[in-house]
Structure formats: structure tokens, C-alpha cells
Design a protein around this nucleic acid. Structure first.
Lengths: 348, 348
DNA sequence: TGCCCTTTTGACAGCGCTGTCGACGTCGAT
DNA sequence: ATCGACGTCGACAGCGCTGTCAAAAGGGCA
């Protein structure tokens, strides 16, 4: 039923092979011939059959985005997906999604996965992107991959942004507002994001000459509940922080919940900031001050890079894309001035 | 490099064709032969090459989920995706995602899309699922599709849930709490969800003997901003409602923002409920009372059904899956009793 | 046992494209 | 003018599987 490469060849008066060359952007086709063939393609509305292409060329034209299964539903992944789709648009590549339990031994199972789906390229996000054994196995299997925000040097193609600098910048913002006692809720162990964001927090304190107080740092796991629990511990201290920097928006929401439960009003009694700029940051009241993580751009670049690396296997790329600090209403100057003596009247 | 069907045939001592029959679940293979072949498949770790299959069988083994482009990033789509992936797991089918601007004339462009990607089945969500011309064109092209929450009878396979009943139920909840003056923020015109949820709102009022007041219904578009604007209008009325039912969680968040801006505390001064149970409903403070829309199950059923319809073209299916009303902290009894005379003291 | 009909199995072609390899044309250097 | 080197193009086989169709095997009945 549909038009085949053969029809195009006949229409343009050339061999099938030459049409194929034009389709695949091969050099060594004279310009006028190329133009004639391209015209025929347009005229006949020809689109190559992906299955036939895959079979003959022994490529799947598939890019697999692998992500952690329990995280499915997070807007982070959705944003990444959008970027991946953008990158595939206009190429013969298609995106396929593969949730994988991080609990499983992925390094062991990846072989089966690859022979089954034969993706031409993989895009890995944390925690998979931080799995050294997995990356090594992929190298052995000679499968191209790009990582996103991996903490491993091992990955030849990695896209991310300077999370440490961003974290420092947002903590700077709190310091500029006048906060001196700033709590931090960390991310999940093993994630690069955890260390980078915490280090940024430290950097900002150091620059401002504020002592780093271990007891102001509470363990989180990037989730709402973990943020709530961690904030509870911080707020129940004898001398609670006037501001809390949570390493993710979800956790920041948990912090706000914990504050509300204790009768605190944000930002009057507590400034809160998050990280990621997920949709909830905009929708919560007050709007959450946070760092806009350029997910779409990151995954778009990751896909573009990894596709490029198919042609140029030796390729390396380590790109940090620009981010943006989003100041909203959840951060404000602390209520009490630093010297408690001045404000005796405001406790009723 | 990898094992081919030929290897399996040799190992089992049968012809390639018989192995193919087993792979595709054809009848007319004697049980003992089938068992032997299945054993060989397992032993050799054989997985059929999808491209070769597609080419020979003239099927793509692709299910396309088409959604509206600007909506990308919504957790609704992400949930649907998860369901689609679940349904594909264990089948030879793969899911591909296709964002499409609803603004474009999809009915005209779908032909090109289909010849390009050759999906075996489509899953359509609103607004595409409500595009009569699109569905008609798909029928002409003989492409199987399933719709999700379509308002059109035309669709032979549609999965959804009883949104009208669910809306009535959540408004019942407000009435039971004692609210009599309940506002409603509608969804976007053209969506079935808009009409169903508004009708449910009306049903509940009617059952409770409360007059339907047109001026308590404000136009929304399912987005945060539209909810905020609509709530603003309702709250600035001479006699503002004591509760607002927004037709989506995003809009409910907008309602809460509008309330905050007017110095109102939720739920003390205003009860708010939403619809969908997106992640934000859990993370916002106070937690949002809403209806849990079983997205994953819906899309999973949609895919299962549409794949089934490939074998049985005459198939019809119109399934309503169970939903759940999620009561959280954003709804409470109204502050002032209905008779204003009793409460003279509480205005300072 | 022999016949016919049904069920089970296999030989073969071909899906639509690309890789290989060889033929031909073109150009510059000798 | 001759030759080689390179650039350009086409014939052909074959990627790994399934559809078609015919052959073989089984089964019921006379």
C-alpha cells in the first residue's frame, strides 16, 4: 500500500541504493542528483519503513530512557521525557521508556534487556547513572549511553548543571535576607545531588562566615514524608532555624507541612526553600523559592550527545547547563532580629 | 551474534515455521512439540528480533499514546504513561509517546503520522479523544484506537470512571460538613470532564435541596492560574461561598492561593476540594480533599483493550473503573453557622 | 484395511531496506 | 595521451522473521 524506496528510485530514475544514500545523509552523491531524489521523496510523500531499516542496518533507532521504578510519577521524569522527545523529533529515532527497580541488580540484568530491545542508545538518570557496575557492563557490551547528573567520572557523556553552585546561591539568598541559623534537609544517600547540594549549603555558610553546625543538617530522602520528618527534628530543637533549605521541592513541601503543624507561618516564622522547581513549587501557597533545574534541556542534550556518539565512538562530553534561582514567597527576612534583646514585646 | 529463530529450530529439531507458531501463540501445534520448543527457547535464551518480526508480519508492535503538547509535564500524563508501560510489559508491544498540539488540525495530519510511525494501536486522551473528525479519520484509515474519558459515543473502546458520580460525592461531603453556599470552578470547555464534574456538583445540590445558583459557578481551564482567577471572582462576591469545589487539583491550588491573598485560612474560612489527586494534593498544606482518579488503571485497561481489538476488530468496550474520594484537611465545617444572628462576637 | 477429511508440520518466498563490492566516470599528474 | 586515484553509482545478497501453500500425519468411519 504505502510508497517504497523502489518507487522513489523509479520516479527519480536512479537506483534504490542511491536513494538510500540520500536518506541516510551519506556523502558521495552529486548535488544535482541529491536534489532530484529529495524532490521525488517530497513529491511521493515517501517515508522509509522503520522496521525494514532496522533489520537491514541492524539498528533499532530506539533510545531508551531508563529510570527508577518507584520514582515513576515524579515530574522530574516527565520533564526528562519531554526533552527526550524533543531530541528525537526530526530524527529517525524513537524514545522508549524503561522503568527499572533500582533494588534489582541492574548490572546483571542489563544484558538481557539489551538483547531483547536492542536500543541504540541509553539515557541513565540517578540512581542508575551512579551505578558503576552497570556502566562498566554497558561498556563491555559496547552499548552507547549518556548519564544525567552522574557523580561518576566513568561516564563519557554526562549532562547536568552545577548543583553545588546553585545550592550555594540559594543559601546566599537566605543569608542576604538576614538568616544566620539555616537548617538543611539532605537528599538520599548515594545520589550525587545529595552531596552537591549539601556542599553548596556549606560553601555559602563559609563565605558568610557562619559556622557549619552539623546538628542543623537533617537526613532526607528527597520525598515529602522524609522532608517532613527531618524538618520536625530541626524545628523541635531548642533553638530552631529561621530558615530551612531542603534539597528538593518535595521535601520543602514536607518542611512547610511540619511548620504548619507546629503553628508556624511561612515565611513569617520560617523561610523555606527547595530545589528543582517542580510544578508544586508554583502551586503551593506561599510559592516556593527554589532552583529551576533545566530538565528538558538536560535530557535533550543527553540524547543529542549520545546519538552523536554513535557516529563518533570516542566522544566525550561533560556539559553543565545554566540553571536559574526562582525567588518566590516562601522566603523572607527572619522575624526576630539577631539580637533577641530588642524584641521583648512581640511574644504575647 | 545473538541467537536466531533458526538456532532454536535446530536445537528443537523442528522447522523454523513451527517455532514461529509457538512464539506467536498459534494453535495447531501439538502439545509435546510446543513444550519441547519452549524448552529450547528458554535454554538458548532466545528473544525474537522485533525489527524482523515487524517487517515480516507488517506490524510495528507499537502502541502510541498521543497527548496534548502544552499539557506535557502534567502528572496526569505521567500516570497514564505508567499504566501504558505496565500494559506493554510482557507483550511484544512497546509504547511510544506522541505529543501533539491540539491547536493543529490533527484529523488532517494523522494520516501522515500513521504512515510514518505505523503504530498498531493508538490511545487518545482528551482533548484529542473528543475530536470527532479525528476518530472518524482513524476509522477510515482502519487504525485501532482506544480513548480515555471521551465524551463521544463514537469511540468503540473507551475507559474512564464515573466523574459525575464522583463529583457529586465530593460535593456531598461538603454538604454533610454543613456547607450550603458552595462555589464551583469548572474545567475547560470541550472536555467531557468539565460537564460531568459540573453535573455532579448540580446533582449533589439538588439532592440536598439547595438551589443551583449560576453565579456560584466560575469558568476555569484546569490550570492553576485559571483557578486562581475564578476563585477571585467567587471570593469577592458580596456573599462569598464557604466552600469551593474546583474541577481539578491544579485549580484547587489556585483557589487556595486566591484565598490566602485575601487573608482567608483554609479550611477555617474556606473549604476547598479538588479533583484528580495529583501529587500536589498530598504535598500542599493543608492536604487537599479530592477524588483519586485511577489513571494508571485506566490507561492500562485502554491498552489491553485496544490490543485485544487487534485480534477481534468488532470489539466494543466501555468500562468505568472505581474511583476513591480522598478526604484530607482542606475541608471542614463552615465557621459561621447558617443563621448569622448567633455569631455576633466572632468579628473583632 | 482403506478411504477421506482434518490437523499438524515444513519449504519457500519475500517483507523493504542497507552493506558489500565492483563498475564506471572524472580529474589531475605524468 | 595514458595512467592511477578518487568520487560516484548500481547489482545483488541478505538482515530474521512470517505468510502462503502444499505435504505429511493423524483419526474416524465403512
Amino acid at each position: 500500500m504505502p510508497v517504497r524506496i523502489e518507487d522513489v528510485a523509479a520516479h527519480a530514475g536512479v537506483s534504490v541504493k542511491t536513494v538510500s544514500r540520500v536518506l541516510n545523509g551519506h556523502p558521495n552523491v552529486r548535488a544535482n542528483l541529491r536534489a532530484r531524489i529529495e524532490a521525488s521523496i517530497r513529491e511521493l510523500d515517501y517515508v522509509p519503513n522503520p522496521s525494514a531499516r532496522s533489520l537491514a542496518a541492524n539498528r533499532s533507532y530506539l533510545v531508551a530512557l531508563m529510570f527508577d521504578n518507584p520514582l515513576a510519577g515524579s515530574s522530574y521524569i516527565m520533564e526528562l521525557i519531554v526533552g527526550v522527545l524533543q531530541a528525537c523529533k526530526g530524527t529517525p529515532y524513537n524514545a522508549v521508556l524503561h522503568p527499572f527497580d533500582a533494588a534489582d541488580d541492574l548490572a546483571a540484568r542489563i544484558g538481557g534487556f539489551v538483547t531483547q530491545h536492542r536500543p541504540d542508545a541509553l539515557v541513565l538518570v540517578p540512581p542508575h547513572a551512579n551505578d558503576a557496575k552497570l556502566l562498566q557492563r554497558l561498556d563491555e557490551l559496547d552499548v552507547r549511553y549518556a548519564t544525567i547528573s552522574s557523580k561518576l567520572r566513568q561516564s563519557r557523556i554526562d549532562i547536568g548543571f552545577d548543583e553545588r553552585k546553585a545550592a550555594a546561591e540559594i543559601v546566599d539568598h537566605l543569608i542576604t535576607l538576614g538568616h544566620r541559623c539555616i537548617g538543611h534537609v539532605t537528599g538520599l544517600k548515594g545520589h550525587g545531588a545529595r552531596a552537591w547540594r549539601r556542599d553548596g549549603y556549606r560553601d555559602a555558610l563559609r563565605r558568610a562566615g557562619i559556622d557549619y553546625d552539623e546538628s542543623l543538617v537533617a537526613e532526607g530522602k528527597f520525598t515529602f514524608e522524609s522532608g517532613m520528618a527531618a524538618a520536625g527534628a530541626l524545628l523541635d530543637r531548642r533553638r530552631p532555624p529561621t530558615a530551612i533549605f531542603a534539597a528538593s521541592d518535595d521535601m520543602a513541601c514536607g518542611v512547610i507541612r511540619a511548620a504548619h503543624e507546629r503553628g508556624l507561618v511561612v515565611p513569617r516564622d520560617l523561610s523555606v526553600c527547595g530545589f528543582d522547581d517542580t510544578p508544586v513549587a508554583r502551586q503551593i501557597s506561599p510559592g516556593l523559592t527554589t532552583v529551576r533545574q533545566p530538565c528538558r534541556e538536560i535530557s535533550r542534550l543527553a540524547v543529542e550527545s549520545v546519538l552523536q556518539s554513535i557516529r563518533d565512538p570516542g566522544m566525550h562530553r561533560r556539559e553543565r547547563v545554566p540553571y536559574q534561582v526562582q525567588i518566590r514567597e516562601s522566603t523572607a527576612a527572619p522575624r526576630k532580629p539577631r539580637r533577641p534583646s530588642r524584641s521583648a514585646s512581640d511574644t504575647p
